[in-house]
């Protein structure tokens, strides 16, 4: 892009180059909380690849805030594949020419091998009887969520609330914005990130309801005990996608296209899908979804494409400076 970026990317390249010296290796640049999923997935793929080609393959992982990660890739971090939690982040790489423009058609299911849903975590016994989005905007309810403008997790909650209000009888964009505004007034703080929101809610005991991913509920149970909270599924919520893509520029340069393609394809294999389910991410396979039905209750979901005309449009309308989020605060 600019000289400044090249200067920064020089530093990153130097680190990436030392990483990439092993014979057959693959770098998967991923979002922050994907550690467990890919820690379990990588040995599965290594076994599969060994059996298929006889090749030993070294798999490297890099985790960090999703947007920071794609910026590093754009600035020269040599990722063969990216596995993200926001379509916008992959879109950003497509704009930079690193990823195919039609990346979301290169793999099934919008290139998202598994999904999750935005849910409510409430205190044991649900003392404020929170059942649906409407309850979150009531007086006297405190809502905990990560920053709705700066974090993927917070953005997903924001869009879920908006879509729910829009789908109510007589719903309109103005009505939805007013509703989301009332809901956000009930937030005593905006947490720095998903895990910070969890700590605030569970450990510091602030708030009546925590908005988060379904898959986080299991981690909370492991950390704080199952009896400490309840999960509430609202009447309508966002199905969050976790898009994956090949970084064309890198795989062509390194000659790893076949390997990288296989690495991502295998996410849709029965083993890959079951691994996702074991990590509390909803698999795409209907069969596995049935098998793990106890952990994935049926819930009515929408996608960003359904309601907001795609992630790029949703982002521009709501989260860019001057977008709907800023209007809630600034236009007063």
């Amino acid at each position: 892009m600019s000289r400044f970026n090249q200067f920064l990317s020089g530093l990153l390249l130097a680190t990436a180059a030392t990483l990439a010296q092993a014979e057959v290796s693959l770098l998967n640049v991923s979002y922050d909380v994907a550690r467990d999923v890919y820690k379990d997935y990588n040995p599965l793929f290594q076994k599969f690849w060994k059996a298929k080609t006889g090749e030993e393959v070294t798999l490297k992982q890099s985790h960090g805030g999703s947007t920071k990660q794609v910026r590093a890739v754009a600035d020269g971090l040599e990722a063969d594949v990216v596995t993200m939690n926001q379509a916008n982040d992959v879109e950003f790489l497509a704009e930079k020419g690193l990823v195919a423009k039609d990346w979301n058609r290169k793999f099934p299911n919008n290139a998202s091998p598994y999904t999750s849903a935005m849910v409510f975590i409430v205190r044991k016994g649900n003392p404020k009887s929170i059942r649906d989005w409407g309850d979150l905007a009531k007086d006297g309810v405190q809502v905990i969520l990560p920053h709705p403008k700066n974090t993927g997790n917070g953005r997903n909650s924001y869009l879920s609330a908006w879509a729910w209000a829009l789908k109510q009888p007589g719903g309109s964009d103005q009505g939805a914005q007013a509703f989301v505004g009332r809901l956000l007034k009930n937030a005593p703080l905006f947490a720095a990130g998903g895990r910070d929101a969890t700590t605030t809610f569970m450990q510091r005991r602030i708030g009546d309801v925590l908005l988060t991913f379904e898959c986080e509920a299991e981690l909370i149970a492991r950390e704080f005990g199952k009896g400490e909270f309840e999960v509430v599924y609202p009447s309508l919520t966002l199905q969050t996608e976790f898009p994956v893509a090949l970084v064309d520029k890198v795989v062509d340069k390194k000659g790893t296209r076949k390997l990288a393609q296989a690495y991502l394809d295998y996410l849709w294999s029965p083993e890959g899908q079951e691994n996702a389910a074991r990590n509390y991410l909803r698999p795409r396979s209907a069969e596995l979804l049935k098998k793990y039905a106890a952990q994935f209750p049926a819930v009515k979901t929408f996608t960003v494409d359904d309601v907001f005309g795609g992630p790029a449009k949703a982002f521009a309308t709501h989260f860019k400076d001057g977008g709907s989020f800023d209007q809630i605060y600034v236009s007063k």
Partner: peptide, 23 residues
């Protein structure tokens, strides 16, 4: 901080916010 707009947002947070918008 709590990071509420107009109340407890610091400038470095706005800088991060810009970066999160690829800006």
């Amino acid at each position: 901080a709590g990071n509420l707009p107009l109340v407890s947002e610091i400038t470095p947070l706005l800088i991060i916010s810009k970066l999160e918008q690829y800006d």
